[in-house]
Design a protein around this nucleic acid. Structure first.
Lengths: 354, 354
DNA sequence: CATTTTTACTAAACGGGTTTAGTTTTATAA
DNA sequence: TTATAAAACTAAACCCGTTTAGTAAAAATG
């Protein structure tokens, strides 16, 4: 059964499609269409189950009421939850979401951005891989409204919603230090072009420095995004085999922490007896694993909400060229048992170096 | 900067836009356009960074190269992973995905289906809430190709990709029975219109029956999707407070199992000493929690792959009206420690009834 | 009664592609 | 030399809404 078009309604009532369009868009009264005619149009539209073709409408109005969302990895619960909230807030504002996952690959990110532009999305929410700011400059040049989430480009003045990765990482490291850990590894992803990861590292370093703890380059372990298993394996062996370089590990994201957990399991390494573990980004798993893992939790729902609000504001005030906003939301340090006695965070524990 | 249109290229070369369109779509030679002209067109398109407007193209061709995906709950890792694979396979076939989450609400599902139809998607992949088959009939009537995943409508002859929930639930229950558990609760979601959940229940009942284990209606516990916490709390209190109605719990999906884990944590209920727990649907958490949870794992990537293949096949053979397919994929029973000694599944353990 | 205003509506352009049905020019066959 | 075919290209319709500019008829005003 073919779909009903505006013309079908117009013909069957013997009026112009202009009239039908105006009435159905609620501009009937404004344009002086009589009450009776309006009623007839509405009745016929209902009868024929008319649904406007959004593509045709979009072609004329230049608006698709669709936004694009590109996250680094949709299978990561952090981004999955974020995606859900973004979809939710968009649907409240009558926008749809085209959903993409860049798999942390800059060339895929570039392709996706092009594709979204071809689809005439009204705006884009992007967690950038961070390697190539040309993409961002192109968006700007093409005048497509966009909001960066999670990661930003330090030198560019863009809309951004995220957390203070530096301070949160500082606090997380400081938490370890106050519990007496003095040899803390930093496990991160390579190549870590993402601003979030770089800031986490800087916060970690600053906390060490402020506590007068000597940093060793051996503490820094980078593993590839594509194959974290092998990298984490190697990193943990280096860090924990005699002479036990570290007594605590700071995982720069949840995926690394989970992978570390797997490796610990395999080698029967005990937390926190053999090593303490903390993670940036919380997840359900960390509540239930043994022992529960201390982590920095990001306010995912708020990030999604602000990103959508900001984006839609920009879309709907496009010509006025509104100023950009940077929204930094607070994180929460979820203290659990993976660093030892969590009830007395200020008491330093005797650390057993195995 | 305004985007380049076909007309821009045509004018700047002094040719018709027909010619440009044909050349850029690779129909140049077929339509007898000379080599030189074709080269000129390509060169100019490159120079002006021409990208066809997909909306305009879609309006004319009636194809949007977009499919809609509706899952029940995108924040559930099962669906998040599925979504990722679906997006991946679609992008290989040059389709985009509009992503939606019905939150298990039939009216939201209906709205989303309408919305996707308005957006002229070429097809839909749907994990239906299962309450209202009218939606499905409407899709059929409108001639929109679609594939059901995860849940199906037993009476309707549709494309479907999923697993044998009945048999898998039977096997999972049987696993408990062989370990000596004889009072097994079934924890499920209400209202469980989804075929998957109903089949899991049937498989559970059949396994009990075949083992000559008496079933009590007290074993069946239904909790609401919107607020599982309260429901699971109540259910577990009913099941595990004296007189300890059951010694094992079969959670019909991973979310219920995770919620149960939370409740156990709160009340200091030990697995498997106080109660055994198994879950339908696996997740990372079950590998790492203490103890690790035995679960039925679905082949998520294969489900996504087959769903996309089937859908695209139907889209691209629409007029030929290809026959429907039902693809049932094998599950895997991941035996862990949540039911006691997992190394000797045939040996019955002495069960302590608290 | 003539003119202006208001009411109720319509024709046609537009957006940016695709596609059908030609047209013009040049080469080939009769 | 003329009819015919092939080669190279174009005009215009079409998809389906939205929007601008305008018209016809009735009512109000001078």
């Amino acid at each position: 059964m073919k779909k009903t078009s505006l013309n079908d309604i117009a013909k069957s009532l013997g009026v112009s499609k202009t009239l039908v369009s105006m009435v159905l868009n609620g501009h009937g009264t404004k344009n002086g269409i009589s009450k009776q005619t309006q009623e007839k149009v509405h009745a016929k539209a209902r009868e024929l189950n008319y649904k406007p073709n959004q593509i045709a409408r979009g072609l004329r109005t230049g608006k698709s009421n669709t936004i694009g969302l590109i996250v680094a990895d949709i299978s990561n619960p952090f981004y999955a939850k974020l995606a859900r909230h973004i979809e939710h807030y968009c649907s409240l504002a009558n926008y749809n979401v085209i959903f993409c996952s860049s798999e942390e690959e800059p060339h895929k990110e570039a392709e996706l951005l092009d594709m979204l532009a071809d689809r005439q999305v009204d705006g884009i929410i992007l967690s950038a891989t961070g390697q190539d700011s040309n993409q961002i400059l192109k968006l700007k040049r093409d005048g497509i409204p966009f909001v960066l989430i999670d990661r930003y480009y330090p030198r560019l003045d863009n809309n951004f919603v995220g957390v203070d990765n530096y301070q949160s990482a500082y606090d997380l490291t400081d938490h370890l230090i106050r519990l007496g850990y003095n040899r803390i590894a930093h496990l991160t992803v390579s190549p870590s072009h993402a601003s979030s990861l770089r800031d986490r590292y800087k916060g970690y370093r600053a906390a060490l420095k402020d506590a007068n703890i000597r940093y060793s380059s051996q503490y820094y372990q980078e593993v590839s995004f594509e194959e974290p298993e092998a990298g984490v394996n190697r990193a943990i062996r280096e860090l924990l085999e005699p002479p036990h370089i570290v007594n605590a590990i700071f995982a720069a994201n949840n995926r690394l922490a989970v992978t570390a957990l797997e490796v610990f399991n395999k080698w029967n390494i005990k937390i926190p007896q053999d090593v303490a573990l903390v993670s940036f980004d919380d997840m359900d798993l960390f509540k239930f694993c043994f022992p529960p893992i201390t982590a920095v939790a990001q306010p995912i729902q708020e990030i999604g909400k602000h990103a959508v609000e900001l984006l839609i504001h920009h879309i709907e005030n496009k010509e006025k060229n509104p100023p950009t906003h940077q929204i930094i939301l607070p994180t929460k340090l979820e203290i659990r048992r993976s660093c030892g006695n969590f009830l007395t965070p200020l008491e330093t524990l005797p650390i057993k170096t195995k």
